[in-house]
Design a protein around this nucleic acid. Structure first.
Lengths: 226, 226
DNA sequence: GTACATTTTGACCATTCAGTCAAGTTTTTG
DNA sequence: CAAAAACTTGACTGAATGGTCAAAATGTAC
């Protein structure tokens, strides 16, 4: 006996296939994907992948769970999309390091921008930190290819600057790691910083003060000068 | 009708109550709690609280789930215990910063020890990072009291050193954050560092090289020195 | 405006997983 | 060595949650 179904085999059922690429997007698709991705970034960055439920994202995005699943068939799909869209933005300033610029000035600009980003979009940093912390199951490949190449490229520039005597003799890779560590710490460990410093972190000048302190340490070091 | 049970109400059933404090522990209790905590640290630090199942911990600890639940009635109990035991160890070197020592030498020692810890016990760092990243739901109170006080205390020392001209004029809090950020980055973002640097991170001299680079940057800064 | 494609949803299913329980086994104690 | 205490476990349960589905509602193109 056949399974009772209205579907006849061989007859193609018209089924809305959500386009993966950015082209061919309906107006509604563009809107709803946006809502979902925004909601998902918020949730994933706060509770992690496992700690976030589809229902939560759907509610925050203002739609039903099946409706959300219509746009992103798997929970993982949302996560990967959010991660991809965030990564690019996050690495932009790094790519913008100008090999022809003044070393100290370029690094000062880079550190400043990263501090600014940590303050204005901490979710992006946290999402990324969480993924790495858990072994980068989704973006491992990206790290080993794109990021790796980009870092090698920039490290070469830094090394040249060092050899030209325009930078202190520092291993370029560890310099990059140190900058990342320091700047992103202000987003990732915000709760801890808040616990220590109290409400003053919301005061107007605090962001600038933090950026200034970090710049001072990284550029000039801890030793007394003058 | 009564529910068929052999338990008679009012009759106290002898039930083994696991002592929460460290005293009064059976030999078996000491062993098994140790096995559980070790296994849990491993799992929680890798997969987070939500990403870890009791079964996984039990299997890694070599016992059945109900048996594990006999020692730690709730999943949260294991997590909190691991966190507490780890936190103390993790903050030890910070507490050991000697107000009477030489500033640069003290900081050099502190940074070196933290780098060493990140390399030898990355799980501890990751467990902690994960907890903070998710808003410190369990140790929020600890951060706002113990940690806060400790940081204030050490910040006062740093500030004195600055006023004595034995340290560059830096905000002491941000100096502390910068040191934490940089050193713990090597544990928390190990996967990323590995992706960029490749297998050389397992080479003998790598740890020392990393520590040297971080010390150089933090102590002397990026600017070229005469 | 009508036919077709797209979007939306309530009801449902299967799995995973924290936690329970009662009955057993082992260890300790007097 | 016998009784009590401590320890261990297989078999469950209930709630949470990722994902399905068929049908209804809405939007779009001609």
């Amino acid at each position: 006996m056949d399974v009772p179904t209205t579907r006849r085999p061989g007859v193609a059922v018209p089924r809305a296939d959500i386009p993966r690429a950015k082209e061919k997007r309906t107006r509604i698709q563009a809107i709803n994907r946006g809502l979902i991705v925004d909601a998902a970034l918020e949730m994933f960055s706060t509770y992690g992948f496992r700690g976030t439920t589809i229902d939560q994202i759907a509610e925050r995005a203002g739609m039903s769970k099946p409706n959300l699943l219509y746009y992103f068939p798997k929970k993982e799909d949302i996560y990967v999309t959010v991660l991809e869209e965030t990564l690019e933005e996050w690495l932009d300033p790094f790519a913008a390091l100008d090999p022809e610029g003044d070393p100290i000035e370029e690094l000062r600009k880079y550190i400043s921008i990263k501090m600014e980003m940590s303050a204005s979009r901490p979710e992006a940093s946290r999402l990324f930190a969480n993924e790495i912390l858990h072994g980068a199951p989704m973006i491992g490949r990206f790290l080993q290819t794109n990021l790796r190449n980009m870092v090698h490229e920039k490290a070469a520039v830094l090394r040249r600057w060092v050899s030209e005597g325009r930078l202190a003799p520092i291993d370029p890779y560890h310099l990059i790691f140190t900058i990342w560590a320091t700047t992103q710490h202000y987003a990732d460990f915000d709760v801890q910083i808040r616990a220590v410093l109290g409400p003053q972190v919301d005061q107007p000048g605090h962001r600038e003060q933090a950026a200034q302190a970090v710049l001072s340490i990284l550029l000039n070091g801890i030793r007394p000068r003058g």
